[in-house]
Structure formats: C-alpha cells, structure tokens
C-alpha cells in the first residue's frame, strides 16, 4: 500500500519556459489543423498575444521538472503499474509561447478501491505565469495497480 502519511506533501515548485517550437511540435503530434496553434500571425489575428498552449498542455508542464512526475519516486511507485484515471483543468487564463510558467504540485489524496487492489493518487497543480497570474489549475488522478 502507498504511504498515506505523505498526503498533503507539497513538491518543490519549478519553472518551465513555454517554447514556440515545443508548441508547434505538440500541435503536430495531436494532428491539430487550426493554424493559431503554430502560426504566430494567425494567433495574433485571432486575438491572442502569441501562439496559445492547447487546453491539455499544462499536463506536459507537469513533466518539465527534474523528474517525469516527482510523485512516482516520492511514493516509491513502479511506473509500469501506473495508469491515468482522470484529469481536470480549470482555465482562469491562457498560456502562450514565450511564457515562463511556475508549476506547483501537491499530493492531495490517496485512497483505494477493491480492497486495495487499486489505489488512487490525486495531485493538485497550479500554473502561474511571469506576471504572477494563475493561468491554469489541474487535478490529476493516477491509478496504481497492486494486483
């Protein structure tokens, strides 16, 4: 069983630059067809100050720290037994190419189902840009297969 005493832990925050090339690569990898996601001129004429990061991109920022996902080592999890259970985003703002985003993560909860055969690890994250605006929040639920 994962160590419940770790609930509430706040991970050391880190900052990540949102590079234009990375956003273009991301757009390509999801087959995006809307040019605002790779063409700066199209983005500006759509009213954005630069190429926007697509809605699910904050999850990629979670993995821009020193480790893939720090919670994996922190709870001594075996990466091959982890599945993604659920993901939620809130968008108080937008993330753009050129931004520097500070990612803060907290271990919100751990619980189990099926008599411990499955454990759920809930992470809460926030994303703050260089102007000190919280531009996104997310909740990520990982499923850990014990059986």
């Amino acid at each position: 069983m994962l160590d419940r005493s770790r609930i509430g832990h706040e991970f050391e925050s880190f900052s990540a630059e949102v590079e234009k090339g990375r956003l273009r690569f991301f757009a390509k990898s999801i087959g995006e067809t809307d040019p605002v996601y790779w063409d700066e001129a199209a983005a500006r004429s759509a009213g954005y100050r630069n190429i926007p990061a697509p809605p699910t991109f904050p999850f990629s920022l979670d993995m821009d720290g020193p480790e893939l996902l720090p919670v994996i080592d922190f709870l001594k999890m075996d990466v091959s037994r982890i599945l993604h259970g659920a993901q939620e985003f809130e968008y108080p703002g937008m993330i753009y190419a050129g931004d520097t985003i500070t990612v803060k993560s907290k271990l919100k909860d751990i619980f189990d189902k099926k008599s411990g055969a499955l454990e759920f690890v809930v992470m809460e994250n926030s994303y703050t840009n260089q102007n000190n605006e919280v531009v996104a929040k997310s909740t990520c639920t990982l499923v850990y297969r014990n059986a």
Binding site: T33, P52, L83, G85, A86, E88, F89, E90, Y91
Partner: peptide, 16 residues
C-alpha cells in the same frame, strides 16, 4: 477549440 475559441474554455475534465 474547433467549436469555440480556446479563450472561452472555462473547465475541461475527463475520466479514462
């Protein structure tokens, strides 16, 4: 975002 510009998106969640 094909349907509405992304700036209008308030929340987005999914279960796998």
């Amino acid at each position: 975002t094909n349907w509405q510009p992304q700036s209008r998106l308030v929340k987005f969640s999914s279960r796998f």
